[in-house]
Design a protein around this nucleic acid. Structure first.
Length: 254
DNA sequence: ATGGCTACGATCCGTAGA
């Protein structure tokens, strides 16, 4: 079972790259973020032609998440229960015996801003919900753009980023809280190359300089982590013309 | 050096991303 997450930064713009990547990579389940497409315009037919069913919840211009799967999706739910939010950031579905949660965490803009406070509130609600989900689902996979670089080794220049949004202590604490309820950072289950990142700014030739952050994550319940045989970042799509600024992250589950 | 890219919906620029 191959699980993946990819912030496509506009599904409309990236549809061709996505379908090519699906055919080449053949993941079983893919969580997408920043689809930026309303449900009425979701490209379900093109994805079905590539072999994938889809659950999706989107909006114009901003946010939007989707779960693609070769096998049927059931128990689809949108949003965090009890956390009222107009922004389409959360989608969950069951595929086979795995409960999949697709997340697009708030960016936070800058430390101390209203959006930063919203990000921390969102994380608080997320943690409580996922703790309950873990109690319900032994095989739980949480994938998405979490917009937090958990440790300094997830940042190309920790000194330059110190205290900034995505690495600030409260954000890292919010990320750590997800691990403390029993989720494992799939990427860190394995030895990884130094300077492994999943996002690079479009500007300043950041990708060429590998000036990135690791902010896209796959978190696994203990039951799933035990059967995880690999977790990797696929940089190939970031090298294409007109790429998303994020690269896909993949996990193989035995 | 507070810029720089990209997407979007709206005009020919502002907002947002991270």
């Amino acid at each position: 079972m191959k699980l993946a997450t990819w912030n496509v930064n506009s599904l409309k713009v990236r549809l061709g790259q996505l379908t090519d990547w699906l055919l080449q990579t053949a993941p079983d389940v893919v969580c997408l973020q920043e689809t930026k497409v309303e449900d009425a315009n979701f490209p379900a037919a093109a994805l079905e032609a590539a072999g994938y069913r889809a659950a999706f919840v989107g909006q114009k211009t901003y946010n939007g998440v989707a779960i693609l799967s070769r096998e049927p999706l059931s128990g689809v739910t949108a949003g965090i229960p009890g956390f009222a939010d107009e922004q389409k950031r959360v989608l969950a579905a069951t595929v086979g015996d795995i409960r999949v949660v697709c997340l697009y965490a708030p960016n936070g803009q800058s430390v101390g801003s209203d959006k930063y406070e919203y990000k921390l509130r969102w994380y608080g609600a997320l943690r409580a919900w996922l703790a309950a989900e873990l109690a319900r689902h032994e095989r739980l996979a949480v994938l998405g753009d979490l917009n937090v670089a958990p440790e300094d080794r997830d940042v190309h220049d920790p000194k330059a980023w110190e205290g900034q949004v995505h690495v600030s202590a409260p954000e890292r604490e919010a990320f750590r809280a997800l691990l403390e309820i029993g989720l494992k950072d799939g990427f860190r289950v394995f030895e990884q190359p130094e300077k492994s990142f999943s996002w690079w700014d479009y500007r300043m030739m950041a990708f060429r300089r590998n000036a990135g952050l690791r902010i896209d994550h796959i978190l696994l319940s203990a039951g799933l982590a035990a059967g995880c045989t690999a977790c990797t970042i696929d940089k190939a799509p970031r090298k294409l013309e007109r790429p998303s600024d994020h690269a896909p992250v993949l996990a193989d589950i035995a």
